[in-house]
Each structure stands twice: as structure tokens, then as C-alpha cells.
């Protein structure tokens, strides 16, 4: 398979996009051995809100690519990624947080989007420029929900 790369096309557009990103949209965090041990916010993640964000097509839309038995009553689960069942057994919280924030740090070249990142993107639609897909609090909520998915 050919290598899919971060593009150079329209690099100026890219730079503009990044320039307008307000730093406050992205929480500051420290990556330790490919994990993010510390929560991104002071407010503990809410698994109920997290479940909502996982399903919501305008937020996580995780079901575009994943299935999960816990969400069996939601229509149209994708099959691009592995089922989310049992992720809490496979990964600790720090790694789950890393996977949601930027899975490229865990899976090289993955199709899974980085949900809390704004730099290094190409030609982002104006209305989303400089904004991460999920806010820091939504990331914490999603991680809290993923932690409930044990088998």
C-alpha cells in the first residue's frame, strides 16, 4: 500500500489555519511514553456525557468506524476499526486518553482522527479551523466512558 502522508499541497492555507487557532482550545498536556497520564481538565470525566459524544455524529461519531455491544441500539456501526468492547481491559486510562487525543502517537499512520489536535492539519474547513473535534472536557468524558467498556 502506498504511504499516506501529511500533505504539502496548500501549505500556506495550512499555516493560516494554524495561525488562527487560539491556544486555549487545546489543553496543555504531557505525553509520557506514548500515554497521557494526567487528565486534560480538573473536572472528572462523565461517562454518560462521554457515551453521548461517542454516538453523536457531530462530535466523536466513533460508530462511523467502530462497533460496541453497549451501543447495539444505535443504528449503523462501522467496521473500519476494531470493536470497542473490552477496550478498558486492553488499555489503561493514560493510553486511552492518548488514543482519543491523537491515535497517531499509538498507531502509526492510522485512519482514526486525532480528536484533540489542531496543528499539522491541511485545508481545514473555515468554520472548524483552529478547533479540535472534541474539547478537553469531551475527551475526558469519552475516556471515562471507554473505561466502562470491560468484558
Amino acid at each position: 500500500m502506498s504511504v499516506i502522508r501529511q500533505g504539502t499541497i496548500a501549505a500556506c492555507v495550512l499555516l493560516l489555519g494554524v495561525a488562527t487557532a487560539s491556544a486555549s482550545d487545546i489543553a496543555s498536556f504531557e505525553v509520557v511514553d506514548g500515554t497521557i497520564p494526567q487528565p486534560l481538565t480538573d473536572v472528572a470525566g462523565d461517562p454518560v456525557a462521554g457515551k453521548q459524544a461517542v454516538v453523536d455524529r457531530k462530535l466523536g461519531n466513533c460508530l462511523a468506524c467502530h462497533t460496541a455491544a453497549d451501543l447495539a441500539n444505535e443504528p449503523f456501526h462501522g467496521e473500519v476499526g476494531p470493536p470497542l468492547d473490552g477496550v478498558a481491559d486492553r488499555w489503561d486510562e493514560a493510553t486511552l486518553r492518548m488514543i482519543v487525543v491523537n491515535p497517531k502517537m499509538v498507531y502509526d499512520g492510522t485512519i482514526m482522527p486525532a480528536f484533540h489536535r489542531v496543528e499539522g492539519l491541511n485545508l481545514v474547513m473555515d468554520k472548524f479551523a483552529g478547533k479540535p473535534i472534541l474539547t478537553a472536557q469531551q475527551v475526558e468524558d469519552v475516556v471515562a466512558y471507554l473505561k466502562t467498556l470491560s468484558e
Binding site: V3, G7, P113, M125, I133
Partner: peptide, 11 residues
């Protein structure tokens, strides 16, 4: 080039 370049917020 275009075909293999990642675009957009979803990258």
C-alpha cells in the same frame, strides 16, 4: 499527490 494527502479536521 492529492489522493494520498490527508485533508480536513478529520485528517
Amino acid at each position: 499527490d492529492f489522493y494520498y494527502t490527508r485533508f480536513g479536521q478529520l485528517d
